[in-house]
Design a protein around this nucleic acid. Structure first.
Lengths: 216, 216
DNA sequence: GCTGAATCTGACAATTTGTCAACTCACGAT
DNA sequence: ATCGTGAGTTGACAAATTGTCAGATTCAGC
């Protein structure tokens, strides 16, 4: 398998301008990539990883079959790019929908979860994929931390801040808690998408469960 | 794709004797299947789903390439069988290592987690696969509940019992909590396999986190 | 408009998945 | 012990998919 796609020092996620070292990708190239990723997203969510083929993706994207391989080495890499993209989107979604500075731990947790739930509602199935434990798909070391790991760490940072304010129990390891919280969100997200229950109810219950876990 | 493998009414997991309706599979057939599943397990754990091919599995199993398809329709079905097998193993492992009736909620949780952690130590990577959210691989309805769903429900049953004894907060929805607990275990299992920390430490922290989540 | 680099395309090569006629093996009948 | 038979397996080959790359197309700069 030969790697035909762009040089690895190109930021393969957003293809932003990297002053001086690599020329900016053309609009054309960006557009092709965008279309491929959009098609990939739809198919991964609809059919799952197993049932999605590179040829399906390129066809749905309206590009030549070989074009897929100019952008991604294989299906896995395309999947990882999709997950990364979704992760970034959630971040931006959160920034856009940030309403006010939380006064309490409960408000803080509730607000973050609301963002996640609202994003999920608008993009069914996307977060489930983005938060995938990549280890099941592939076991080799990844070039960068995966979205789920980064989120766990971010939650860990949040816990550390709340702990500094005395809102979270002092004996809790923030990073550990970050992972625990991520696990909760992941599973409840999956369960909530299936169960006969409302988003609001799940949101309240999950907030409650998380608060309990974090406090004495 | 034609389905060449045994009639669907055969229990494809353990191929137990089904009195009267289907003849028992021969030793030879059981042995082939066992070897395929053993090879599949090793490869799925080593390489992940993406990097494992049916031809790799049949080769590692020491059976003909076509034999794979006599037992499983495709890679996904083989993976699901592996996950199911691992799930059953954990159950049996738990039964064999059940030491005593828990006196407190903490002991109960600690004991169940010990079983899970001990099994994981003896079978690295297997539980991660067995507890996979199958939805990422495939989105169609499965014929039976997946291992992760069943575990969540089992934890839900445990929570209900503990609740009846007044050990778990009365306002907690047992099934919801079951899913939350599963999510915690899953993520912490993944984190613990990677982090520079001891099994005992992770076990203690997770027990603590779970108790907090379940109590006032 | 011309040019050349960037990018794409799809035919074809390479590889993998899936099929099935031929073969093997285990078991029961004689 | 031998033989017949059906279950189960095999691997050559068909079908499908992944991956490659020479030729084609596009587009920005002059």
């Amino acid at each position: 398998m030969t790697n035909n796609h762009a040089p690895d020092d190109t930021d393969t996620t957003t293809l932003t301008i990297d002053e001086g070292s690599v020329p900016a990708p053309s609009k054309r190239r960006l557009e092709s990539r965008r279309r491929i990723l959009a098609a990939a997203r739809q198919l991964f969510v609809e059919r799952g990883y197993h049932g999605t083929r590179p040829q399906d993706i390129s066809k749905a994207a309206g590009v030549g079959h070989g074009t897929f391989y100019l952008h991604f080495a294989d299906k896995l890499e395309c999947f990882l790019a999709f997950a990364e993209e979704a992760s970034k989107e959630l971040e931006m979604f959160g920034e856009q929908h940030h309403t006010h500075e939380a006064q309490t731990l409960k408000e803080g947790v509730h607000e973050i979860l609301s963002v996640i739930f609202n994003y999920s509602e608008e993009n069914p199935g996307v977060l489930a994929a983005a938060m995938t434990d990549i280890n099941v798909l592939a076991t080799e070391e990844m070039d960068m931390p995966m979205p789920d790991q980064r989120w766990a760490e971010q939650w860990g940072d949040n816990v550390k801040e709340w702990q500094a304010k005395g809102e979270v129990a002092a004996d809790i390891d923030p990073l550990f808690a970050g992972h625990v919280l991520l696990g909760m969100i992941r599973q409840v997200g999956s369960y909530g998408a299936r169960a006969e229950t409302t988003k609001e109810e799940v949101l309240e219950k999950l907030t409650q469960a998380m608060i309990r876990m974090l406090t004495d």
